[in-house]
C-alpha cells in the first residue's frame, strides 16, 4: 500500500512537469491564434507601404502602437542572436578553458575551492549583473572601444557571458571527468605531456559533452531577459552591428506585455513572439539532449 502511494507520488510529480510544459505551449498557441488571422504570418516578417507618390516601401520594423502598426519580428530575432551569439563565443572560450583547468590542471585541493566559487557565479541574480553593466560596464567599455551607443548588444552579451561561463565551465568539467581513466592513463603512458593529452586525447573524447554544454549555454543566453532589458538599449533596429542598440524577443515581451491592452493585435503579436522563442529554445535543448544521449550510448561499449 505504502509502496503504491510512494510510486504514485513520484509518478504524478514526474508527469506534472510534462503536463505543465504542454499546457504552457497550448496556452501560448491559444492566445496567439487570433493573431494569425488578425495580423497574418507575412506581416510578422515585413510589410509593404505605399506612399502618396506611389513608391512602395518595405518596412521591417517593430512598431506595434504606431498609427500604422508594424509587427515585423525580424529585428527582434536579430537582436536576440546579436546578444546570444557573442555571449556564447566569449563564454565558450573562457568557459571551456576554465573547465579544462579545473578538471585537468588544478590540484585537487584548489579544485575543491574553485569549482564551488565558479558555480556560485551562476547564482548571481541577473538583475544585479544587468544593473552593473548599465551603470559601470557600459561606460568602462565605451572608453576602451569608443562605440557610439553606450548601451548595445555587445554590452548585454558581456553581461550574459557572466552567467553562461559557469554553465559551460561546469558542464565541460563534468564531461572531462567522465572520460574514463584508462584513456587518460594510456595517453600519459604513450609519453604525452599535459598539453598533448588535453588537446589530442581528452578534448576529442569529451567533445560531445563539451558541445552539448555550449549549446545549452546558447539556449540560456537566448532566454536571458533581465540583462538584455537593462543593458541592450532596447531599440528594435534591423541591424547586424553588435555595437548598436538592439531589442531582444525576451525584452520585448517583458517590457510590453504588462501594459498592452488585452485582445489587441499587439497583445497577440507578443504571444506570437513567445511561441517563436519557445520553438527556438525547444530545438536548442533537444539538440543538446540528442548529443548527450548519443554520447551515453557510445560509452556503453
Amino acid at each position: 500500500m505504502r509502496d503504491k502511494l510512494i510510486r504514485f507520488f513520484f509518478f504524478t510529480n514526474g508527469m506534472a512537469a510534462l503536463i505543465l510544459v504542454l499546457l504552457i505551449f497550448g496556452f501560448l498557441l491559444y492566445e496567439s491564434s487570433a493573431g494569425f488571422s488578425k495580423i497574418g504570418l507575412d506581416r510578422y516578417l515585413s510589410e509593404d507601404f505605399v506612399s502618396q507618390d506611389g513608391t512602395v516601401v518595405t518596412e521591417k520594423a517593430w512598431q506595434p502602437t504606431s498609427d500604422e502598426p508594424k509587427y515585423s519580428i525580424l529585428p527582434l530575432i536579430l537582436g536576440t542572436f546579436l546578444t546570444a551569439f557573442p555571449a556564447t563565443i566569449i563564454s565558450t572560450l573562457l568557459g571551456v578553458c576554465t573547465g579544462v583547468y579545473i578538471s585537468e590542471i588544478a590540484s585537487s585541493r584548489f579544485r575543491e575551492v574553485l569549482k564551488p566559487i565558479i558555480e556560485l557565479f551562476a547564482g548571481i541574480p541577473t538583475v544585479i549583473i544587468g544593473f552593473f553593466m548599465l551603470v559601470a560596464g557600459a561606460t568602462f567599455f565605451q572608453e576602451i572601444f569608443g562605440y557610439v551607443f553606450r548601451l548595445n548588444a555587445f554590452i548585454a552579451s558581456l553581461g550574459i557571458s557572466l552567467i553562461i561561463i559557469p554553465v559551460i565551465a561546469s558542464l565541460t568539467e563534468d564531461a572531462l571527468r567522465s572520460v574514463s581513466g584508462d584513456i587518460r592513463m594510456a595517453a600519459y603512458a604513450l609519453g604525452a605531456n599535459k598539453w598533448q593529452a588535453i588537446r589530442n586525447v581528452l578534448i576529442p573524447a569529451a567533445f560531445s559533452g563539451i558541445s552539448a554544454s555550449i549549446i545549452l549555454g546558447f539556449g540560456r543566453a537566448m532566454g536571458e531577459t533581465m540583462i538584455v532589458l537593462m543593458a541592450s538599449g532596447s531599440a528594435p533596429e534591423f541591424t547586424l552591428d553588435v555595437f548598436k542598440s538592439v531589442k531582444t524577443m525576451t525584452a520585448t515581451i517583458a517590457a510590453e506585455l504588462g501594459e498592452v491592452s488585452q485582445e489587441s493585435p499587439h497583445y497577440y503579436a507578443l504571444f506570437f513572439i513567445g511561441i517563436v522563442l519557445f520553438l527556438f529554445s525547444f530545438v536548442i535543448n533537444l539538440t543538446a539532449e540528442l548529443i548527450l544521449s548519443k554520447k551515453r550510448r557510445n560509452m556503453d561499449y
Binding site: F49, V50, S51, Q52, D53, V57, A61, W62, Q63, S66, D67, E68, P75, F149, L151, L229, M230, G233, S234, A235, P236, E237, F238, K244, S245, K247, A255
Partner: peptide
Amino acid sequence: EGGRSLDFTSSMQALQ
C-alpha cells in the same frame, strides 16, 4: 507626410 504617418526611428533606445 507623403500619405504615411510618421513614427519614431527604430534606433531610439527605449528605457524602462
